[in-house]
């Protein structure tokens, strides 16, 4: 196989992957420009073009505010869970103490309960803390639910880093906090950006809590706002609006990835430091 063949093969693979990933999104965009009876048209290609759906989602509910809420919730969840998780995973990965394995499993067990089952307990808790129908009422449970994941992933990555890294610092008597900040943070970027991104998307997409813990349109997040969009009657689904809204909320994530992907690439240089 010569070089050219190889790159052709490679690029066709890329194309297949991209098509498979993007097609439904593309179709959502196409659908978002259709209205009325046109929505029942299964054609792959754009058949009509109306911006009506995009205007109506902002007219019928505070969708701008919903997006802002989602941004606030997701960002807070990422920041909070990363702060808690980086220190915790340092302790779990680099310091030996008894019961570490048990602790890790306990943390993990939080992710083993179905969300539907803890919903009512969570609901009572949120109400008793006076956080019902407020953004903190969404931030706290989401943070706690992403914690096991962030902690585990960061712990794994931190364990992979060589021992010698901190040995000198430990002998020099640097405090653990300094070690985390000075030595590990710079090396952990790829892992942190990745877990942060995944936590962000997780919080961005979370539906069940957001639906149950909020009451008014002003504190709702995007998935709830989309799910609660309605047609003219109970049975009618406002496909055009739903698709327009989905397109709009997916764009920020795409932008986010484009911005942060440099950080993910930065891992390459960080890796070189290890050797």
């Amino acid at each position: 196989m010569n070089r050219q063949m190889k790159s052709i093969l490679f690029y066709s693979l890329v194309v297949v992957v991209v098509i498979f990933s993007v097609f439904p999104f593309y179709y959502a965009i196409v659908t978002s420009f259709r209205s009325g009876q046109e929505l029942f048209n299964p054609s792959v290609f754009p058949t009509s073009f109306t911006m009506g759906n995009y205007f109506s989602i902002f007219k019928e509910q505070p969708f701008g505010l919903n997006i802002l809420n989602s941004v606030i919730v997701a960002t807070s969840v990422v920041v909070l869970s990363l702060i808690i998780a980086v220190t915790a995973s340092y302790a779990l990965a680099r310091i030996h103490f008894r019961g570490r394995g048990l602790l890790l499993m306990t943390i993990l067990s939080v992710s083993m309960f179905p969300q539907v089952a803890i919903l009512s307990g969570m609901y009572e808790l949120i109400r008793s803390m006076g956080l019902y129908n407020s953004l903190p009422g969404l931030i706290i449970p989401n943070t706690v639910l992403t914690l096991p994941f962030t902690v585990w992933v960061l712990t794994t990555f931190m364990k992979e880093l060589p021992k010698e890294l901190e040995e000198a610092a430990v002998v020099d008597g640097a405090s653990p906090l300094t070690i985390v900040r000075r030595i590990f943070l710079p090396l952990m970027w790829p892992a942190m950006v990745t877990t942060g991104l995944l936590a962000f998307i997780g919080a961005w997409n979370e539906f069940l809590f957001a639906l149950t813990f909020t009451l008014s349109n002003e504190v709702r997040t995007v998935p709830v706002a989309i799910a609660l969009m309605s047609g003219a009657t109970e049975y009618e689904l406002p496909w055009g609006n739903i698709m327009a809204a989905s397109v709009l909320v997916t764009v920020p994530i795409v932008v986010l990835v484009l911005v942060f992907q440099r950080k993910i690439v930065a891992g390459l240089t960080a890796g070189a430091v290890k050797g």
Binding site: S21, V22, F25, N205, P223, I226, S246, V257
Partner: peptide, 17 residues
Amino acid sequence: GLVRAAVLIPWAIPTIV
């Protein structure tokens, strides 16, 4: 970069949607 963003799109769309 673009491919990377494109690949992430499915994960970015809320499950419900």
